[in-house]
Design a protein around this nucleic acid. Structure first.
Lengths: 114, 114
DNA sequence: GCTCATGGTTACCTCTTTGTACGTACTGCC
DNA sequence: GGCAGTACGTACAAAGAGGTAACCATGAGC
């Protein structure tokens, strides 16, 4: 999504506001996995093999900034960082479920129509 | 959204598949207005003052390709082109409503926390 | 024959997003 | 002393998204 963050025009429309938050390249999937429970950074990497390390870091940082994700650093060596949804992040659950269900409908449609 | 269309990795996750379809810069708003009824091209332009003509054309074309929007050209001068949702497009309604409602929650939250 | 309105298309340029590759910090283990 | 493992950060380059501005076709109205 080439949607510049902090763009005022996003906030005019509530739909755009939502998409501005969850529309990032990998945010949907990240949120979807976090819905299933806390994950370490390396675990998320395995879940998103096509997402580079840098991108995963960036997307997580933005989700954290937007208050959807909580980041917990444990003072260990080697480092251990855990990500989990905040209460506000969990309020996205029905939306994400809706997106997933519709996405499956869309994929089935693609198969039918070639 | 800088999400390359026709990218296989999108389709691995249904959430990403949905976002690939509706995640375009202006698609959310366009769909939201079309939910309220058929619109001419010029009407949509007025609804999206921040969207350039070129972008509106592109977004509508992609929505049409994805089977969400039907485009009807009337053989008139000056030209008259109408856009409306297909049945499949209307199946997105609950998802869009969900995005809108959550977006409003998000905006209220932004105001509270500054 | 000039202008206007509508719904485009096209070329060109800029800014953003993303990828690749490499560097870092720390400590325990061999 | 050197390497492994984790979770980053940084620099550079490529790709993609989006803006601006100009052009097009056509017929009605003047």
């Amino acid at each position: 999504m080439s949607r510049k963050r902090d763009d005022d025009s996003n906030t005019n429309c509530a739909v755009e506001a939502s998409l501005g938050v969850i529309g990032g390249r990998w945010k949907g999937v990240v949120l979807y996995w976090l819905l299933k429970g806390t994950h370490r950074f390396g675990e998320l990497r395995k879940r998103l093999p096509n997402c580079s390390q840098r991108m995963l870091t960036l997307q997580l940082r933005e989700l954290e900034e937007d208050g959807l994700v909580k980041r917990t650093v444990y003072a260990q060596v080697p480092p251990r960082v855990e990500y989990e949804l905040t209460a506000f992040g969990r309020s996205l659950e029905p939306v994400l479920i809706g997106l997933r269900d519709w996405g499956e409908k869309y994929k089935r449609r693609l198969q039918r129509t070639g």
